[in-house]
């Protein structure tokens, strides 16, 4: 095969129907899910700092979790929510949950149903789900100033006054740590702006990959103590607490898919330059 023929074939491959690429991506994601490889997972600094922030809390310390995601980002954020709940219940913390997204309430119920029974955690004594309130940053501001005014009942319409672990909890300042599981607005940014920064209550977060670029500056500036970034972050947190979950099992597929996409990008660029050089020669 001469050089020109080879270049023609490469250029032709570069113009392959996009549906072929979709199919290839589907295959490289599916295969590692069916036949796991077990690639090693090492915690990055940001995940480690998130872990340290939660780990610094002890028995009976009040941890505020905020669920701001829905089914559309569940594969990324739910594993980290479950991992943090494992961590909190294993250390005997008091877990308080609020939701800035309506779907967040169902995600929280799902995560609690999966994790709380493993530690014999009792509703109202070890954890409480205050539920969803609409209003975004106004809700965060409300929790910061007077939580009792905003939440008079929990998600099951039980009066907050009658819940034992709500005694002495009146505002954000009563918590040791805020942890937001966020997929967008309202989410981590609003918690930083109207919750953590004004009160000085330390905060950490787990976010969808798409949001990481927006969140990292807050981490660099010390406004956040660590960030769990997407599914890889969840897998790293699972490795740190020693509990393999959905994050870990998705990492093989994630890594291989990334490799294939990188190869596609390189190949696409090569064909682009070859085609451009050929057309320059023509004229």
């Amino acid at each position: 095969m001469d050089k020109n023929n080879f270049i023609s074939i490469v250029i032709k491959l570069g113009k392959v129907d996009r549906r072929v690429i979709f199919l290839l991506i589907a295959v490289v994601v599916l295969l590692p899910l069916l036949f796991p490889i077990g690639l090693p997972i090492r915690a990055t600094d940001t995940t480690q700092r998130s872990f340290n922030a939660v780990d610094a809390l002890g028995q009976g310390d009040k941890l505020l979790l905020s669920f701001e995601y829905g089914p559309s980002t569940k594969p990324e954020i739910h594993p980290m929510a479950e991992a943090v709940l494992h961590h909190a219940f294993s250390k005997g913390m008091k877990v308080y949950i609020v939701c800035l997204w309506p779907d967040g309430q169902f995600m929280a119920i799902d995560a609690l149903n999966a994790i709380a029974p493993q530690y014999n955690a009792v509703y109202g004594e070890d954890y409480v789900l205050l539920g969803f309130r609409p209003g975004g940053e106004a809700v965060v501001k409300g929790i910061t100033s007077n939580l009792r005014k905003l939440y008079t009942v929990d998600y099951q319409n039980t009066l907050v006054e009658s819940i034992p672990m709500m005694q002495g909890v009146n505002s954000l300042a009563d918590f040791k740590l805020i942890f937001s599981f966020s997929a967008g607005y309202p989410g981590t940014v609003e918690w930083v702006q109207y919750g953590s920064d004004p009160t000085g209550v330390p905060m950490s977060t787990g976010t969808a990959s798409i949001q990481v670029n927006e969140i990292i500056p807050y981490e660099n500036a010390g406004q956040l103590r660590g960030v769990i970034a997407g599914m890889p972050g969840a897998a790293e947190y699972e490795a740190l607490i020693g509990k393999k979950g959905l994050g870990t099992s998705g990492m093989d597929a994630q890594s291989i898919a990334h490799l294939v996409i990188v190869l596609f990008i390189i190949f696409g660029n090569i064909t682009y330059f070859l085609e451009r050089r050929r057309s320059e020669k023509k004229y």
């Binding site: 594969p75 798409i210 998705g250």
Partner: peptide, 26 residues
Amino acid sequence: VSFGAAFGFAVMGRISLLIGRFYDLI
């Protein structure tokens, strides 16, 4: 560089969602 990082995170997010759907399909 910032746009590149954003693109990388976007790809990572989309693949994670695909993995999530494949889990359910499996």
